[in-house]
Write a protein that binds this DNA or RNA. Structure first.
Lengths: 195, 195, 195, 195
DNA sequence: CATGAATGAGAGTTCATTCAT
DNA sequence: GATGAATGAACTCTCATTCAT
C-alpha cells in the first residue's frame, strides 16, 4: 500500500510539475492538477491539500536533482578555471532555455508567500551557489589561476549577476550575446589569463 | 466633467496602487479595487475594464515619477563618483524598503504576460538604467576618476547586480551588509580611489 | 421646442429602427439605442422609458409607410390579375431580402408580449392583407378573371402561405424557386388562364 | 453512476422544458433553470454549459417524441383521406393549445441563431412534414381519392398554411373557425369528395 | 482508499435607471 | 430640457472542498 501510495504521489508530482512549468504558480488550480494527472478530484486531496503543498514537494525533488548538476562530469585534474567555465556554460544553457523550467513558478510562489518563510528553496539555492563558487574561487586563488579577490564577495557577485540575468530572461527576451559578454566580464576580473 | 472624471481616475489609480503593493498583481481582483476605492461595482468599469489595464496605468505614473529620482538633486559641480554614490544610495534605499513598492506586482504582471509584449516597463526601466550608467561611466573615465573599463558592459553589470539584489530582496530577507558589500565591490572595480 | 423635440424623437426612432433590424427585439438594450442615436443616456429616457415603447413607435411609422406600398403605382386600367401579380412580386422581393427588415424584431416583440395585447400590428397587417386581397378577388370574380372561390377564405389562404414563407425565410434559407412555385400554385387555383 | 447521472440530466431537461415553455428562449437564464430544477448553481454547469445547449437537447427529445405522433394510431386499412383528416386534427389540436408548447421558444432560438446553422430542427420538422404529406398525397392519388395535383407542391402548400397558422396562433389569438375553414379549403382542393 | 457528483462562495461583467449639475 | 457619471441588481461561470457510495 505504502509502496503504491508513494508511486501515485510521484505520479501526481510529475504531472503537477508540467503544469507549473506551463502556467507558473499563481494561476494553477487544483483542477488543473487533477486534470493533468488524470486522478480523481477527491483522490488528489488524499495526498495534498492545496497547490502550495504540491509545489513545495515538486521543488524539493527539483533541488535534489539539481545538486547533481553541479558536481557532475568534472574530471579529476580539472583546473578551477575549467570548472568555472563549465559552470557558466551550464548557466547559459539554463538562461537561454525557452521552456521547461520552474523558475517563473518559483518566483511566483515566493512572491505569494511572505519573505519570512523558513523553508525557502530560492534562498537555499542561491546560498548553495555562493558556497560552491566561493570554494572554487579559493581553489583558483590557491593554484594561482585567479587574482586574490575577496572570494565570498566575488561569489555573491557572480550569483547576483546570474540572478539578474535570470529575471531578465523570464521577463523579456535576452540575447545570447548579453550573457556571453557578462560572463566574459566576470572571468576577466578573476582570471589572470582570459581564454 | 472631464476634470472631475480625471480626478476620479486618479483616485482609483491611487487606491489600486495600494492594493497592488499589498497583494501583488495576480491575486488582485476588480472587487478588491472596487472596495479599496469605495466606488460602485459598475463605476470602476466606467474607467477600466480589467486589472491589467489598471496596473499598466499605475505603472505608467510610477515610471514618470521615477525618472525624476535619477536627475534630482545633483549639484552642478558633482563628480561622476558623487553621482554614482548617490545612485547606489537611492538603490539601497529601494532595496531595503519593506513595503510600499510595486516590484513584486510588476514581476507578477510580466510573468503573467508573455515575454513578447511590446510595452514592457521592466525592460524600459532596465534599459534606461544601463543608458544612464553608461553615460556616467564615460564621464568618469573622461575626468580620470574611473578606470578605462568597457562602459557599456560595466553599466549592464551594475544593473544586473541590482536586478539580482532586487529579486533576492523580494523573495527573502536580505541584509544591509550584503548590499553595501556588493556596491563597494562594484565601486572598487571602477574608481581609482575608493572612499 | 415642440418642433425640435419632435425632430429629436424622429432621430431616435430612425436610429433605433436600424438597431432593431440588426439585432431583433429581445437583445436590444437601451444602451444600444443610446449609442446608435448618439444621444445622452438620460436624454433617451426623456422621450421613451423602455425598448418596447420605442419599438411600438418604430412599428407605427413602419405600418403607415407600408400602407402606401399596397396602393402604389397601380395604373387605372390594371386587371385584378395584374394587381395580384404585382402583389406577389412585391411579396417575393420582401421574402428574399436578406436584411433591412423588421420582421424578426416584430415576431420577437409579440412573442415577448402576450397574445392578448390590444394593439397588435402583426395582426392588423395580416387582417389588412386579407381585406385587400378579398376585395381584389371579388373584383376578379366579378370581371370573370377568377374562378368563383370563397374570396374570404382564399384571401386568408394566400396570407397564410405568405406568413408561412416569411417565417421560413427568417428561420433558414429559402430558395427563390420555392416562392415561385407556391405563388404559381395559388394563381393556378384562382385564375382561369395562368400566365 | 452513469445511470444516476443520466437520470439527473433528464430531470434537468424536464424542468428546463417547463421554463422554455413558460418564457420562450431568449429570456431564459441559467439561473432560471437552476431554480426550476432545484439544483446547485455549479451543478447545472456539470451537465450543460449554456441555455442554447440545454434547449437543443430539449428540442431533440421533443422531435423524437413528435415522430411518433405522425405514425401513431393509424389502422391498417385507413385511407389516405382518413390519415389526412387525422393529421389535420392533430395539427388543429396543436394550434389551439394555449400552453405547454415549445414553438415560441423554438422560433426565438432560431431567430437568435443565424439562418445558416447546420442543425435546424425547425427546418427538419418542416421538411419531414412535406415528405410525409407528399407520400400521403401520392397514395391518395394512386387510390383515386385525390385529384391529380403536383403532390410535392401541394404538400409544401399545406405545410406553409400550417406554418402560417402556427405563427398567427403564437402571436395573437386565433379562432377555431379559422383553422377549420382553412383545413376544409385544403381538403376541398384535394379530395374528390369532401366530408 | 478512491471516486466524482454536488455544493456554494465569489469573481467578472453588463445594463436599466436615477440624479446632481 | 439635457447630460453622463454613478449605482446596484442580476447573470454568467469557475473552483476549492466535501461527502455519500
Amino acid at each position: 500500500m505504502g509502496e503504491k501510495s508513494e508511486q501515485k504521489k510521484e505520479h501526481i508530482l510529475g504531472c503537477a510539475r508540467k503544469v507549473f512549468v506551463e502556467k507558473g504558480f499563481r494561476s494553477v488550480t487544483m483542477k488543473d492538477i487533477v486534470e493533468a494527472s488524470e486522478i480523481s478530484r477527491g483522490g488528489l486531496y488524499l495526498y495534498f491539500s492545496n497547490t502550495a503543498e504540491i509545489f513545495l514537494e515538486v521543488l524539493k525533488r527539483e533541488t535534489e536533482a539539481d545538486d547533481d548538476v553541479f558536481s557532475v562530469s568534472i574530471s579529476e585534474d580539472a583546473t578551477a578555471t575549467d570548472i568555472l567555465l563549465l559552470f557558466f556554460k551550464e548557466q547559459k544553457k539554463e538562461l537561454l532555455r525557452r521552456r521547461g523550467d520552474l523558475s517563473i513558478a518559483t518566483y511566483e510562489f515566493y512572491f505569494a508567500r511572505g519573505r519570512e518563510e523558513r523553508e525557502n528553496h530560492l534562498r537555499d539555492q542561491y546560498d548553495a551557489g555562493v558556497r560552491i563558487l566561493k570554494h572554487l574561487i579559493d581553489q583558483g586563488i590557491a593554484s594561482g589561476e585567479f587574482y586574490e579577490v575577496d572570494s565570498s564577495v566575488f561569489a555573491g557577485n557572480i550569483m547576483l549577476v546570474i540572478e539578474g540575468l535570470k529575471i531578465l530572461s523570464r521577463t523579456r527576451r535576452i540575447s545570447e550575446k548579453l550573457v556571453d559578454t557578462q560572463f566574459a566580464h566576470l572571468l576577466q576580473q578573476l582570471c589572470m589569463e582570459d581564454e
